[in-house]
């Protein structure tokens, strides 16, 4: 019983110290993004400058088309999330419920590709895009993003838990397989679809290596690639760089804070594979 007296304060102390270590770099970058150029290089460092220069955010967009990057990223992410959810849920439904020859063999091949590192498929995909003249287009990021073995696997597992009795009643009433998918499985799987959607969104928004390989012109770039390029060109303009960094993180942060429980469920779900 003695333990109770110190365990909780100790836990709070450790977790609070940890939280500060996690959050401080972000708070620091916000402070830096509002400083004047000369105030950045002061020693000892100060959190905020003399006055808050919100104009840094305007300057940043004058030198780099950040609105364009933002728009491109939103566009690509929205399309990939929508199409991947549709393709994964349809295929997941087929693998879970319909019978056809070689179904389990085909699903086995899907499963096997789960362990393939992304770098293994990148070179042929690059050659394919080059051959069809799709390099430096958003299609080169969207097309491979439509299909995911992980998404198909996740939804197939979820659909398998839906009772067969539900669809039998519908089938007797003359419902087609597509009707069963659309009217029964999709509405029942909203939480699973939302969780997968958030994962796809995170991955697409933060993706760096694919835009780096497939895109080259400035007006096509995504936020991550634009930020990396800006860093290459203005490596000492820390206020502008930090402003761009804040803009890159902020939208995802807002989504996260609004749907924290969904994120947590998603991580827990991916963790359950181990048990």
């Amino acid at each position: 019983m003695n333990r109770r007296t110190w365990a909780r304060p100790a836990a709070h102390l450790v977790l609070l110290a940890g939280s500060i270590l996690m959050l401080f770099p972000f708070l620091w970058s916000i402070g830096t993004s509002l400083k004047g150029m000369n105030e950045v290089f002061t020693y000892p460092p100060k959190w905020f400058g003399e006055e808050l220069k919100f104009a840094n955010y305007v300057h940043m967009t004058e030198r780099f088309p950040f609105f364009r990057f933002f728009f491109n990223t939103v566009k690509i992410t929205a399309i990939v999330v929508a199409l991947q959810l549709v393709s994964s849920s349809m295929a997941g439904f087929v693998f879970a419920r319909l019978r056809f020859p070689f179904r389990d063999g085909l699903f086995g091949i899907y499963l096997a590709t789960l362990m393939v590192p992304a770098q293994v498929t990148m070179i042929p995909t690059f050659l394919l895009m080059k051959y069809y003249g799709l390099l430096d287009t958003h299609l080169s990021l969207i097309l491979p993003g439509i299909v995911s073995a992980f998404g198909t696997f996740l939804l197939r597992q979820f659909f398998s838990t839906i009772p067969v009795a539900l669809e039998e009643a519908a089938r007797i009433d003359g419902c087609t397989p597509f009707g069963i998918y659309w009217r029964i499985f999709v509405p029942l799987s909203k939480p699973a679809l939302a969780t997968l959607g958030i994962f796809i969104m995170l991955g697409t928004w933060n993706d760096f290596i694919n835009p780096l390989v497939f895109l080259s012109s400035m007006n096509k770039m995504t936020l991550t690639l634009g930020l990396a390029n800006m860093q290459g060109l203005y490596s000492t303009d820390w206020p502008a760089l930090m402003a761009a960094t804040v803009i890159t993180i902020l939208p995802i942060l807002i989504v996260f804070l609004a749907a924290q429980d969904l994120f947590v469920r998603g991580v827990t779900l991916s963790g359950l594979k181990g048990e």
Partner: peptide, 21 residues
């Protein structure tokens, strides 16, 4: 939980810029 998870959801590019500084 949120504090520890914010680095996870942030893009590595943004995180790299912050840490370089």
């Amino acid at each position: 939980r949120a504090a520890f998870f914010i680095p996870v959801i942030s893009s590595m590019v943004a995180v790299s810029v912050i840490w370089q500084w």
